[in-house]
Amino acid sequence: MPTATELKERIESALPGSEANVEDLTGGGDHFRAEIVSDRFAGLSRIEQHRLVYDVFGTEIGGPIHALSLKTTTPEGQR
């Protein structure tokens, strides 16, 4: 069962220089909320930003990770 800490580490290692705050919404290890700040998001649409994060987990999204709610921003606070 994935933990919030594990998700945070995987996001931050996949997107070097990013900072991720991950919360386990239910405590059940399957519904998470992640707020991620990364300069990799600059110039990307929201869809593209979220895809970068979803791609870290591949088919685990919808599998062991039932839900991963995302908020993505750049260090400058841009979308």
Binding site: R46, I47, H50, S69, L70, K71
Partner: peptide
């Protein structure tokens, strides 16, 4: 065109 899921739609 795909606009997004719940997070993106709510933000928008």
């Amino acid at each position: 065109e795909l606009v997004g899921g719940c997070d993106i739609v709510t933000e928008m």
